[in-house]
Amino acid sequence: MILLSKPESPVFPGRCFLSLRFLSFVLPLVLCASCLFTPPPFSERQWQQEVARQDPADLYAAHQQEGRFFNPWMPEERRGLLSVLRWRLTRAGTYTPPEESYLPRLIPDLAQRLAQLPAGRDILVWIGHGTFLLRLDGSWWLTDPMLSQRALLPKRLTEPALRKEDVAVLDGPLNVIISHNHYDHLDSDTIERLPEHARFFVPLGIRKLIESLHGGEVVELDWWQRRGVDGAELVCLPAQHWSLRLGVGRNTSLWASFLIRSGKTVVYFGGDSGYFVGYREFGRVFADIDYALLPTTAYHPRWFMHYPHLNGEEAVQAFADLGARVFVPTQWGTFRLGDEPAGYPRLDLDRIIAARGLPEERYLRPELGEIVFLDSGP
C-alpha cells in the first residue's frame, strides 16, 4: 500500500498581501497612539540658548509676507491638531489643593469708587485677565477689554471688577488698546458696550473687526509706530505671539505690545507674548519704564506653551530686561487656559520672589478692583 502524505495547505499570495497591508495600516496607528499619550521631551536649557541667539536687529525686519504676519527673529512653532490632541491627552494633574483653589480677591463697587476719585490722580486698576484700567493725566486707558463670561469656550472663574453696564463711568477721554485678536483679549460684546467716545488703537489687520462692532475712531499701528494721544505718546512694539479667530485666517492680523508715555509716567503693556529678545531691546530704547504689565498665564505644559507664553521665571527675567521700576503680572486668575490652575501663576511668582530674595515693593500684585495710585511711587 502506498501511503499518500497529507497535502500542504495552498499558499494564497493575496491573503499575505492583505495581511501586510493591514499591518502597514495598523502599526503606524498604534505607534501614533502611543505618542499621543506621551509628552515630547523639552529642554529649558536648549530653549534659553535658542532665545539667546536671537538678533535684536530682526525686531526691525519685515514681518509680513503674502498677507500673513510672522516673528522674524524666530519662526513660530506651528501646533497642529495632533499637537493639540497630544496636549489634551497628556495633561497632568500635578497641582496641590491650594494651587487648584487659589484665586484673586475681588474688591467690590469699583464704579462707585472711581466716581469718587480725586481729580488729577494717576491710577491703575486690574479689571481681570489682561484688562487694566489706567488714568494718566486725566485720560482713561483700557487694555484688552474682556468683561464677558466666556472667551469663546473657557468660562471665567472670577468676575470682572468692572461690569459692562458700569463702563459709562469712564466719562473722560477713553483710549482702548487691543494687543491681538484672540477671544480672551478682543471680546466683541465688551467692545460693543464701550462708550461712544472710545478710541481704539490696534495692530495691523484688526481695524475692520473693530469698526463692525463700534462707531469710535480706530487707529491701526505697525510695530515701532508712534502716535500722539491726548498729550501722551503711544508706541506699538513687537511681541512673540500669533493670531487666529473664527472666520479670520491664521496670522492675517498682527499682534503687539504697547508703551504709553504720559507726563512723568511710562507704562509698558506686554499684551500676550513668550520670552524673546524684544524685552532687552525695549529696555535699551526706553530706559525709563515705570510699570511693566507682563503676562503670566497658560505656560504649562512647557513643550506646548513655551513659544507664545511667559512662565514665572521668564516674566521676572523680562522685567529685568526692561529695566522697569515696578512689575505687574497680567492674565492670571480669570481663565484656565493651560494645564496650570488659574491662580497658580500668582503663587508661582510669589515663590520665585521669595526664593531669589527679590524686593517685594517692586512686584506689585494687585487684587481685582484694587485702585493703585501711580503718582505715589511704587
Rank of each mutant, 00 (worst) to 15 (best):
G283I: 03
F22A: 06
A239R: 04
W141I: 01
P154M: 00
D144C: 11
P72D: 00
C32I: 06
A52K: 15
G369I: 02
V167G: 01
S9K: 13
V372H: 06
D290A: 11
F200E: 05
R362H: 07
R78T: 14
A256N: 02
H129K: 13
A315H: 05
Q64V: 14
G343I: 04
T190F: 10
V169N: 00
A239N: 02
H129P: 07
L152M: 15
A318V: 04
A318S: 06
F282P: 11
E165S: 10
P359W: 06
W140H: 01
L29H: 11
L237Y: 00
P108Y: 10
P195F: 09
A151G: 02
F304A: 02
S5D: 10
F258Y: 14
Y363K: 07
F42M: 02
S257Y: 09
D166H: 13
E281N: 09
A119T: 12
V51D: 03
V372G: 07
D321Y: 05
T296C: 08
D58L: 10
W126Q: 13
A92Q: 08
Q112W: 07
F69E: 00
L347T: 12
L254V: 15
L4G: 09
D187R: 00
A298Q: 05
H241S: 12
G205F: 03
Y183G: 08
R91E: 10
F373M: 14
H306P: 01
V84G: 11
E217D: 14
I178F: 06
A62S: 04
L152I: 15
R325M: 07
I2F: 11
L29F: 12
E313D: 13
A119K: 09
N311H: 04
P75N: 04
R88F: 11
L170G: 08
R45N: 12
Y363T: 09
A168L: 15
A232L: 08
V326F: 15
P75S: 05
Q149E: 14
L186C: 07
F70A: 03
L29E: 11
A318C: 02
H300N: 09
P13D: 12
F304D: 00
E8P: 08
H197N: 11
F304S: 00
P154T: 00
Q48D: 07
L347Y: 08
A33L: 12
T252H: 06
A256K: 01
H241E: 10
N311T: 03
A198I: 06
H180Q: 15
M74R: 14
P366W: 06
Y95L: 05
R346K: 11
R88H: 09
R105K: 12
R362S: 01
